[in-house]
């Protein structure tokens, strides 16, 4: 056994030995040339999404309601800042965490001075971040088909900002709303060209659990609330 990779050769050897005899394909798939179907065809079978932007937005809005995400359409960045300010007042926030980006920098300078800001980009204290009342991030994409927000570790404030504080606020632009997961993956592939961020996460609604009697409770470990501020 190799100290670094363990029983690599033995495991691979057993796999190759086991695969000498072929297994029958019991459920031949449509749209495939003998093997696996191409990913572009998935949308023929998955839940439909309209092709127009307003259809996508309508579906995303509907799913957000089901998921108990709070979607707000904002005319401009000032309106988004006003929405954050209002939430801060309602929930008596003292400190919020956010990361640097062109979009959020525009928001940051419009927030009330009374709100303490923790910027995570140069590293952060875990306890300090945990103590924040909310975390604000941008995102890679929004997915109409699933009502999801896609964040990555390199673009949207790292791995934890979107999940540790009890309220996650996402600031996004309408142009980021893609049709479905297939389009989301295609978009990420063309943006990152093989060098992906170390984490890609599709967030679909606030944190939830049904572990106790299968009764839905929000905020199991991650945010109890997820607000999506959608700019034109």
């Amino acid at each position: 056994m190799n100290a670094n990779s363990g029983d690599r050769n033995a495991v691979l050897g057993r796999i190759r030995e086991a695969l000498r005899e072929e297994a029958p394909l019991k459920h031949p798939a449509e749209r495939s040339a003998g093997g696996a179907p191409t990913t572009a065809h998935f949308r023929e079978w998955l839940p439909p999404v309209g092709s127009r932007i307003d259809e996508r937005l309508e579906l995303f809005t509907r799913l957000s309601q089901t998921l108990r995400s709070e979607l707000t359409l904002c005319e401009n960045i000032a309106a988004a800042a006003a929405a954050v300010t209002e939430l801060a007042a309602q929930e008596n926030w003292k400190t919020i965490a956010l990361h640097k980006s062109d979009l959020l920098d525009g928001l940051r300078c419009l927030l009330p001075a009374s709100l303490n800001l923790l910027t995570v980009d140069e590293g952060y204290d875990k306890d300090a971040l945990e103590a924040c009342d909310a975390g604000i991030t941008q995102c890679e994409l929004l997915v109409a088909q699933t009502g999801s927000v896609c964040v990555t570790s390199s673009n949207d404030g790292g791995r934890v900002l979107s999940v540790l504080p009890p309220h996650h606020i996402v600031v996004a632009r309408r142009s980021q709303l893609v049709s479905d997961l297939t389009e989301a993956y295609a978009s990420l592939a063309s943006k990152y060209r093989g060098t992906y961020p170390s984490m890609i996460s599709f967030i679909t609604g606030p944190s939830r659990t049904g572990d106790i009697e299968r009764i839905l409770v929000l905020g199991a470990h991650g945010p109890k609330r997820l607000s999506i501020l959608l700019l034109p």
């Binding site: 791995r159 961020p197 984490m199």
Partner: peptide
Amino acid sequence: GYNSMYGGPRQPGELDG
């Protein structure tokens, strides 16, 4: 709720992980 794909440890230029 969360579907997350991880491709290794914290990468250069990333702030945590």
